[in-house]
Design a protein around this nucleic acid. Sequence first.
RNA 1: GCGGGGGUGGCGGAAUGGCAGACGCGCUGGUCUCAGAAGCCAGUGUCGCAAGACAUGAGGGUUCAACUCCCUCCUCCCGCACCA
Length: 799
Amino acid sequence: MNYSFKEIEEKWQKLWEEGQVFKAVFDAAKPKYYLLEMFPYPSGKIHMGHVRNYTIGDVAARYRMMRGFNVLHPMGFDAFGQPAENAAIKNKTKPDTWTHQCIESMETELKKMGFSYDWAREVSTCDSDYYRWNQWIFLKMFERGLAYKKASNVNWCPSCETTLANEEVVDGECWRCHSKVEQKDLEQWFLKITEYKERLLEDLFLLNDWPERVRAMQTNWIGKSQGVEIYFPLKDSDKVIPVFTTRADTIFGATYVVLAPEHPLVKEIIKGNPLEKTVLAFIEKVAKESKDVRTKEDVKKEGMFTGCSCINPVNNEVIPIWIADYVLMEYGTGAIMAVPTHDQRDFLFAKEHRLPMRVVIEPLGHRPLTVEQLTEAYESDGIQVNSGLFNGLPNQEAKFKIAQWMEEEKMGSIKVHWRLRDWLISRQRYWGTPIPMIYCKKCGIVPVPYKDLPVELPKDAPFTGEGGSPLSKVSEFVNVTCPKCSAPARRETDTMATFFDSSWYFLRFCSPKCNEMPFDAKEAKYWMPVDQYIGGIEHAILHLLYSRFFTKFFQDLGLICFNEPFKRLLTQGMVLKDGEVMSKSRGNIVDPDSMIQKYGADTLRLFILFAAPPETELEWDDRGLEGAFKFLNRIWRIQENLKEKADPALTRALHKAIKRVSEDVESFKFNTAIAGLMEFVNTIYQSGADKEIFSKLIILAAPFIPHFAEELWQSMGNKESIFKASWPSYDPQMLVEENVTVAVQVNGKVRSKLEVPVDIGDDALKDLVLADEKLKPWIEGHAIKNFIVVPRKIVNIVI
RNA sequence: GCGGGGGUGGCGGAAUGGCAGACGCGCUGGUCUCAGAAGCCAGUGUCGCAAGACAUGAGGGUUCAACUCCCUCCUCCCGCACCA
């Protein structure tokens, strides 16, 4: 007979809720533990990824609870965003209605998994109680010059009909819908994340408990590179072309300069020159090419001579100025010095267009190196040649010396270049936080006064699916009076990117009902930072970088006194089916709800925790799920046959299990923790357990299979929840065995095993080993060269 | 190209430099049963009747002893990238 999971799970979910077992209450006297999983977008249904993420978190939360911590384990919904608008257009409902329905059904599903959330702290970012603080934060940023409006060339998704942040463009495609991203010139709101670039980079070193991968990705994204900005004076003009390079050591080999076609200087310098028309035609042609085409590796690089020249400041050589499609305006200064001998791109381009070359670095083992010998650019280290004062120096040393020299001689200046750009947050969409700004003909851009917050999102905007923000069609929303001069004015109709919402929700959870501020400083001081954050790798840059930025901003406002929001980060692996990510389009989705129906939430949890370590990918396996179910029934049967007094030998096994499970749970090795539980169950299964041993067993199992454990706990006569019980500790004395098995090796190969007292002396052990019949054939007639004893483990005889 | 992480039975996966393959799935045999399912017991890396030999991507090295440390290489996954 299988245990009746359905009944048990429903019963405990109800009792936990009624008893407020997981309510988190501020208590400065108690050590806190803030466990957070990335909150979901309310799509309406949870998927296996959610189940895995939240189960991992739930185990850690329940374990800490039993360890006596005051645990904060909240849940909420990242509820603004485009799917709600799409659904609204399709189903002719309101985004608001659709979203709230989804939240409700998702809550129900999450509750069926038995997660230990403090539901009283639930927040939804689409509630004005929440998003008014987005507006508050935005205004604070505006006051400090960190939110600003700027006209620029921005990413535009034609299908989502909105602008996108750089972080939201992946391989030239919209991260959400995979449409090709276009470029548009628009005036948009930006957040000055670049103001924090140094701190965002430096503080990554503090995050020792983050996965190396995530730190590396953020480092890459911020993209700090040291170099020199070199000034190339134009011939016959007092203008200069600034060029950024990280390879100052190659400057003597710069034989031409290339500008990006859209570089503002180009039109200036070609004015009136015979090539003007052809150059303009080329610029126009390149302008039509997408960045994607221009930067494709296998496409031939196009370019042409501008008819103008400039001077290489280090040797006063007159060198030609070209323009080419592979030079991008976005990077550096939009101009490069070309060193064909030591840069492969320049090499190919120079060959193609028959441009001059000069070797300035020679490999140690191949000197001299001539241009004729080169079949490709020499990009490795070597010794400087043809480099004036710097001849004979190793190039790495020369790199610094040349940079310094150029700075002294005012030929350039040492500069740091950053890849990180400011964060574009305007979205031409409806379902988001209104940007609290007003445009007045007389006063210009006027922030909405704090007392007028929130700027409520009108619930009944017209939804046609046609382009343009629906908000601009709601005249009561758009038409306002200027807060400064009371003249008629217009509201901003763009909304904020939803990543704004999720950049500080972890702080809101500390005091979700706070009315005066985004969060209560005292509560935040107690609960924050998040001790353990868990979520998918897809947020390695976006959400995690933005949240770090916001945290530093709050620190600058004096609202908090820490600089990083998430102390530890765990990125859980994906759930696969047949080696592929579960997805609707592949049709390989396993619905969590149907698995709960069939086996119960505890079995689902157990399987998902046991099948792989949390960080690695997990291959879904129906039979594995059944195995987990079998294990639960096995424990159930032990309980049905409890004895008065169990074999005393089992106590040692119990203490070993306590040690193993505790250590493994502590370090998030849930798969081996469960393996340890299974081993223990196998040990006690035959001879039977008594009450003492069995209660310890179910306490150890409780974080993984909470309903099951709680039911058995209660059936043994306990009145309080098992999660109020304290986690057992082990007695190191109990782990010491009387006898141990020592493997005996001859020349590193196991030839025998001996059961010996644990505290046997080396000499006594040696005597025993030499008397062992099994070893005779191996050692007889050989001289023993060495006799190595590793106490309690191994003996190795070297002959 | 740069950065991060992998490669261990039929499968998921274990192993502070110390008995490779824990635990689970699957499989084989047995037991129970009128029969089946469930349960229970035993076995299960490869080759070999056995003794034993060989096995952690490949090849070297260090060591009494290497999945683990060092070197060379192959390969897979992820991120970034004509980044100047």
